[in-house]
């Protein structure tokens, strides 16, 4: 909570927006963990995840990693500086 004090300088709408960008970058890591957990016999016993759920998880991870990669590419190639949204 005290961290929010440090962020006071930022424009509120920007702050909210980038907080969500951060979620988008971090979540795929957890999605991969879910794939590992959900398909482990040691953890799930005979109730391992079905094909459809697995496919959904993998697509989610790919899409999110892909989008994050593009974002980082955009930042690295200097487009970020010219960004005016928000």
């Amino acid at each position: 909570m005290s961290l929010s004090l440090a962020l006071f300088g930022l424009d509120p709408v920007h702050l909210m927006f980038w907080a969500n960008v951060l979620q988008g970058i971090l979540s795929p890591v957890l999605v991969v963990l879910l794939v590992v957990l959900g398909n482990s016999r040691g953890i799930m016993g005979k109730n391992k995840l079905g094909l459809v759920t697995n496919a959904g998880l993998v697509v989610a991870a790919i899409v999110m990693f892909g989008a994050s990669a593009l974002l980082f590419y955009g930042l690295a190639s200097g487009q970020g500086g010219g960004w005016q949204g928000g």
């Binding site: 927006f17 980038w18 969500n20 960008v21 951060l22 979620q23 988008g24 970058i25 971090l26 979540s27 957890l30 999605v31 989610a60 899409v63 999110m64 989008a67 994050s68 593009l70 974002l71 955009g74 930042l75 487009q79 970020g80 010219g82 960004w83 005016q84 949204g85």
Partner: peptide, 18 residues
């Protein structure tokens, strides 16, 4: 475009978050 990609990431992040 960067603006489009960043909002896309934000959209996904707003939906699927840790």
């Amino acid at each position: 475009g960067f603006a489009s990609i960043s909002t896309a990431v934000a959209l996904l992040g707003a939906t699927i978050s840790p």
